[in-house]
């Protein structure tokens, strides 16, 4: 089963992702910010990560950089889920190592098709 780690500081968003993705047949772990995400990375061993940008302690960019700099799972696909659509933010996300982005509020079908495009 495809495992997904969803990182978002909003528990509403976390629950929403968890519900949507679980319904779509994924196995979902959640983390509440970048630090938590890095902590849980190894245990969750995700096939894909979905992360928010604006988070306390360690934001999405830092989190992605952290994942990419790690030893394990450095090349796991990471989707940024954000309300921001500014081009420079997309680029910054890409520079941090994000694999793709989805704009919040997310469209379920779009989210799932994007995920399916990124994981085997």
């Amino acid at each position: 089963m495809t495992r997904i780690l969803a990182v978002d500081d909003s528990r509403t968003m976390r629950s929403m992702l968890q519900a949507t993705l679980t319904d779509a047949g994924f196995e979902v772990d959640v983390a509440e910010d970048g630090v938590d995400g890095l902590d849980k990375l190894e245990g969750a061993a995700p096939d894909l990560i979905i992360t928010d940008i604006n988070m306390p302690r360690l934001d999405g960019f830092g989190f992605i950089e952290g994942v990419r700099a790690g030893r394990r799972m450095a090349s796991v696909p990471i989707l940024v889920l954000t309300t921001e659509t500014g081009e420079h933010l997309k680029q910054r996300a890409r520079a941090s190592g994000a694999t793709g982005w989805i704009v919040k509020p997310f469209d379920e079908t779009k989210l799932i098709s994007t995920i399916q495009r990124l994981v085997v």
Binding site: S10, M16, N54, M55, T83, K104, P105, F106
Partner: peptide, 18 residues
């Protein structure tokens, strides 16, 4: 920062619920 994130999160959730 945290104030910003608070309002931002409200916005995000509000978006999800239309």
């Amino acid at each position: 920062n945290s104030m910003f994130r608070a309002v931002h999160s409200i916005k995000g959730g509000a978006g999800a619920f239309g």
